[in-house]
């Protein structure tokens, strides 16, 4: 097996497992850059996965055919945004501990989505969806030698959506007035308030947008990888997205890069057995790699990662 064959095996698999991570990590970036810690990414992603699974299923029954997953994505975006509201209310308006509120959101997602699954389908899992996101070659680009084969043939369209949205989020956060406000309320809310920025409103918008992204991430996970929703469909991807966000230093493109890298580690633990050099490494090491790297990054061994200054602190007007 030569080097190129190995790449052809790993790279597409990495990109596939990275797409949901990228989107969820972007959700985390939006929320945390505005100063609201979001441990609830896992729950948001889980709820998005649940909504994605049932609406793809319903879409098939309503005769939407190949459009069903795309319809489910739209619903999942709305559902994710709505599901982030309790976290926003608790941590912004009611000044609850943001970590606790995020943990509660995870509990709520796990309870509610499985409760509803059992209620709707009488079983612990949703029916398998027929209309998955298909693989396909991108016209023109797939003809480029080497890169075309690696990145643009046999690829999921959702992966391109994820990468595209990473640039969109980067543009929003760094190139628009709203993005400047978002960052300023995350770094120094009082200064922002003094300049006439509505801290509360900006944070609400950011957290709710973050929820929409995480919801989409969950739905894409179902439509491209899992194929249905059970209690164990989302087990840790949300936290891995959180890790990607930190490893990417709270920057949308950094988060995307980290998510791709973690996707690589994930896919290596699955495809590793076919690769000569990696065959002898127990997959434990590849499984724990993303988490170990995140800790090292935080400790400053792999480029220091610093959180937005005001993240985790509720804003109280007039407080010194």
């Amino acid at each position: 097996m030569d080097f190129f064959q190995i790449l052809a095996l790993i790279v597409p698999a990495a990109i596939v497992s990275a797409a949901p991570l990228i989107l969820t990590a972007l959700g985390g970036v939006l929320s945390e850059r505005s100063g609201v810690v979001n441990i609830g990414l896992e729950g948001l992603m889980m709820f998005g996965a649940f909504i994605g699974a049932i609406f793809t299923h319903y879409g098939e029954q309503w005769g939407l055919g190949g459009g069903s997953p795309w319809m489910s994505f739209v619903v999942a975006i709305v559902a994710g945004a709505l599901f982030a509201v309790p976290h926003a209310v608790a941590s912004i308006s009611l000044k609850a501990d943001q970590v606790v509120s995020g943990v509660a959101l995870n509990f709520l997602a796990a309870g509610l989505s499985i409760f509803l699954t059992k209620k709707l389908f009488g079983a612990g899992q949703t029916p398998d969806i027929q209309e998955r996101i298909g693989k396909g070659d991108v016209p023109v680009l797939s003809k480029i030698p080497v890169i075309g084969d690696l990145l643009f043939s046999n690829a999921y369209s959702t992966s391109f959506v994820a990468v595209f949205l990473a640039f969109v989020v980067w543009y929003i956060i760094y190139k628009t007035p709203f993005g400047l406000r978002l960052r300023s309320v995350g770094e120094h809310p009082m200064a922002a308030d003094t300049m006439g920025i509505n801290v509360i409103k900006t944070r609400y918008i950011s957290v709710i947008m973050g929820g929409a992204f995480a919801g989409l991430g969950g739905a894409i996970y179902v439509a491209s990888i899992a194929g249905n929703f059970t209690g164990s469909t989302i087990s840790g991807q949300g936290f891995m997205a959180l890790a990607a966000m930190i490893f990417g230093k709270w920057h949308p493109l950094g988060a995307m890069g980290a998510a791709l890298f973690f996707g690589l580690a994930q896919s290596l633990s699955i495809t590793g057995e076919q690769i000569p050099l990696l065959k002898d490494i127990p997959d434990v090491y590849l499984l724990i790699l993303p988490y170990v790297l995140t800790i090292l990054a935080l400790a400053g061994f792999v480029g220091r990662a610093d959180a937005p200054k005001a993240s985790g602190q509720p804003y109280e007007k007039g407080k010194r």
Partner: peptide
Amino acid sequence: ELVGIVIA
């Protein structure tokens, strides 16, 4: 799972 919701 209702209990999970209540706990949340």
